[in-house]
Design a protein around this nucleic acid. Sequence first.
RNA 1: GGAGGGGUGGCAGAGCGGACUAAUGCGGUGGUCUUGAAAACCAUUAGCCUUCGCAGGCUCGCGGGUUCGAAUCCCGCCCCCUCCGCCA
Length: 424
Amino acid sequence: MLDLRFVRENADRVRKALADRGLEVPLEELLEKDRCRRAVLADLEEKRARHKRGSKEVGERVRRGEDPAVLRREMATLSEEIGKLEQKADALEAAVRGLLARLPNIPHESVPVGPDETYNREVRRWGQPPAFGFQPLPHWELGEQLGILDFQRGVKIAESRFTLLRGKGALLERALINFMLDLHTKEHGYTEVFPPILVNEASMFGTGQLPKLENEMYRCRDDALYLIPTAEVPVTNIHRDEILAEEDLPIYYCAYTPCFRREAGSYGRDIRGLIRQHQFNKVELVKFSHPETSFDELEKLTNNAEEVLRRLGLPYRVVVLSTGDLSFAAAKCYDLEVWLPSYGEYKEISSCSNFTDFQARRANIRFRPAGGGKAQFVHTLNGSGVAVGRTVAAILENYQREDGSVVVPEALRPYMHGLEIIEP
RNA sequence: GGAGGGGUGGCAGAGCGGACUAAUGCGGUGGUCUUGAAAACCAUUAGCCUUCGCAGGCUCGCGGGUUCGAAUCCCGCCCCCUCCGCCA
């Protein structure tokens, strides 16, 4: 959420952000409603002040033994007028808030301007896509041949887009989670947390999933709880409604959690394999940063996620999203894309974003400056470090051999009891 | 699931129809004192909204209601704690 005062005083910047993102929000209506609301408020507050003084006077007359009946009647009338004005002010405020909630974050100046993903800009590339002397297989075929991915059973147990991992496949998944957590906690300075995986509405609102993405989430029937679509939600909400000490910033958390997404509206896409599942594992990086250093923190966070792919020897590239592709709450976002031979292209495996104060304002996460003074909103960041299921797919496909076996990346072997090759 | 207790400023905690303009303590900040620090003492210290400013308004878990007037009384809801039951 943007600051209403900021919107009022920087209407041109907001207008440009909307245009750059290709969004239509009736900004003029918002500004007009806001003007109207403030006019009503001035009238309302003047009447409330009179009413307050009058009521006090009634009390004093009673104490002095005078008859307060006339004044009491006057105050009753005034009270009624106030009630009406309050309704009017509330309605205007609700309208303003509704429109304000539809305004996206302002993209950072370094973000390329363009209407869609074709304007995303590649910023760097690492590694070489493997050259196979044979016809490489997609991971879903490899996985089934090796007996480590069971798509049919996943469908039987749950429904489509759920997969059963078996044997070395389950071990590979677990090894990746442990490898990533160890890397981020031991070498990158993150504190590991394991949060609730069902969260309440306030948490979903704080990070911006509600109200917009309600259809994307699994909801409990008998409780007002949602399955998390990403660890970003519970981990960012760790400090909701808190005032942090400036010297505690930046705070780094990493968390492994399963994630659940309904994937409504993506019926035709990525239907095969592990790429788009309703349930998947992810190691997430979350930062609470001082406003002045948040864009530096974004570079570091992105590099931390990249390190996972470098250690695993997976070819990837980093893309900075254009204004048209940037998510609603983000001011800047880098996507990490891993090479997938079955797609013949790079496929998103991590998304690293700086939300500046957009989430912090919604979730009310502030810090107290060291010298005292007003609490300010922190900046929140997060990124996948990285998506585990897609990493399994990338390893199977990039490390496959002609006989259908798969070499285990060296960095992973200590986590797989020294296993070097996955074979049937 | 049953019974009881409770949600008040950064934290703890009093207040239970009209001087609440929310006591007090802790913590924070500034100062006095000190070679320096600690202690002590003095001062200061909630957020939000409207306003160029003066000033004014709102907020005591949330939402209604009673009243000229609600932190305080009534109704509904949410959350937390304790005990019992059930349970990995």
